[in-house]
């Protein structure tokens, strides 16, 4: 089952958020706080992963799993961070995150004339949302 999906820019602004199933949100009253906490956790986790592995470890974090969900992580060379939360039966989703970036995000967001990569404002692009929705629903692990 796919729970939710985040895109962060390199400064930690949440460009896009979408949830399909979310039984629990401990920070429901404050949306911004929830995104900031998520980004902060990933930022520190990347630091930790790099340090623990020796070297700088850039781009090394792939996923982590708790007893009930798996967070899949993908960072592009430009510093965009893609985060997809699923249950623990979904398997390895690295290829799916790459597909979302390479085939959907680049085509419909990066190439969009109104997209300003540095502004850090949430995306308002219906075509991207539709395409993402379609792709997610086509995945075998969606339900």
């Amino acid at each position: 089952m796919i729970f939710n999906f985040y895109i962060f820019n390199r400064n930690g602004k949440c460009l896009f958020y979408k949830e399909w199933n979310r039984p629990q949100n401990t920070l429901q009253h404050d949306d911004g706080e929830e995104k900031r906490l998520m980004f902060g956790m990933l930022y520190s986790l990347q630091e930790l992963v790099g340090k623990m592995g020796g070297g700088d470890g850039k781009g090394a974090l792939q996923s982590f799993t708790t007893d009930s969900y798996t967070l899949n992580f993908f960072e592009t060379a430009s510093g965009l961070r893609f985060v997809l939360n699923t249950d623990n039966r979904a398997g390895d989703l690295t290829a799916i995150l790459r597909h979302i970036y390479g085939n959907i995000f680049v085509d419909l967001v990066v190439k969009h004339p109104m997209f300003e990569p540095k502004a850090g404002v949430p995306l308002q692009l219906p075509m991207f949302e539709e395409e993402l929705e379609k792709y997610m629903k086509s995945l075998p692990c969606f339900v």
């Binding site: 979310r22 629990q24 009930s68 969900y69």
Partner: peptide, 14 residues
């Protein structure tokens, strides 16, 4: 930040 009631990190893959 979990989307569902959850424990802490159990596995991490890099």
């Amino acid at each position: 930040v979990a989307p569902i009631a959850s424990s802490g990190i159990e596995k991490l893959e890099t």
